[in-house]
């Protein structure tokens, strides 16, 4: 028996909004420690790693490890049926063909249950090593979303150049170019808006706007985003999910011919 309950369905709604443009389907690995998802987009250029710890749920029970292949589009449709104040419970048997989503209104007068068929999926699990990054930038997630949106109008790629002084985002296209520079915050008292850079070595890499635009769909999950960058390895774009876990997006850099 697997059962996981969240008082706020809005967290799960936001998680689905943050992955539905990248993933068609994904395997949800459920164990005692929580729920983990690792999935690549169709082109295998990006990877989503989602972790929801069991202690972050209001109720969590997982008698044996489960791998549940789920259609992200169907799951997203189901979660749209939950009210923002509803409690959500995921429930499955030990060898499940289906998973149930149960929504309960805060006054307990409405109970809705949606059952979704699981998908048999070939599991392709990649080993992501612990990596020490040359630059780690912490900044407002809203500011990052805005920069991605603004610069995407000018080119297909955004170049991120990070030095000790700050971080510079550049897009160059046929119609012109755009760049935004953010200086490291001197007084980081306003923590959420601060730009904090931990740098060992300056880096400069380019990434596809199309994927970055998908990643910033996670903005409602967290007021801060963390970008980890090293030359010649994938960018990591990380959003915390309250006290329950985090979502990390990995994106392969563009390589200059």
């Amino acid at each position: 028996m697997f059962e996981a309950r969240l008082i706020q369905s809005s967290i799960l709604k936001k998680v689905l909004d943050a992955v539905k443009d990248l993933l068609n389907e994904a395997t949800f690995e459920c164990s005692d420690s929580g729920i983990q998802v690792q999935a690549m987009d169709n082109a295998h250029v990006s990877l989503v790693a989602l972790n929801l710890r069991s202690d972050g749920f209001d109720k969590y029970r997982c008698d044996r490890n489960l791998s549940m292949g789920m259609s992200i589009a169907t799951m997203s449709k189901i979660l749209k049926c939950a009210g923002p104040e509803d409690t959500v419970t995921l429930r499955a048997a030990d060898n499940p063909d289906t998973v149930a989503f149960i929504f309960e209104s805060s006054n307990k007068e409405k109970l809705a249950e949606y059952e979704m068929k699981l998908i048999n999926m070939d599991q392709e699990h990649l080993g992501i090593p612990e990596t020490f990054y040359s630059c780690v930038v912490k900044m407002s997630s809203h500011e990052f979303a805005r920069i991605v949106r603004d610069l995407s109008q000018f080119g297909e790629n955004i170049t991120i150049a990070c030095t000790k002084e700050g971080v510079k985002f550049t897009a160059i296209g046929d119609s012109g170019s755009a760049n935004v520079k953010l200086a490291q915050t001197a007084d980081a008292s306003e923590e959420n808006d601060a730009v904090i850079i931990e740098m060992q070595e300056s880096v400069k890499l380019s990434f596809s706007c199309r994927y970055l635009t998908c990643f910033v769909k996670a903005t409602p999950l967290c007021s801060q985003v963390q970008l980890s960058i090293s030359n010649d390895v994938p960018l990591v774009c990380e959003y915390k999910i309250g006290d329950i876990g985090q979502i990390r997006y990995y994106l392969a850099p563009k390589i200059d011919d």
């Binding site: 990006s46 080993g127 992501i128 994938p234 392969a252 563009k254």
Partner: peptide, 14 residues
Amino acid sequence: FVLQKVMPDYFPEP
């Protein structure tokens, strides 16, 4: 920019 590796190039299956 013409080249872009894919995730398994960076993170091989264990």
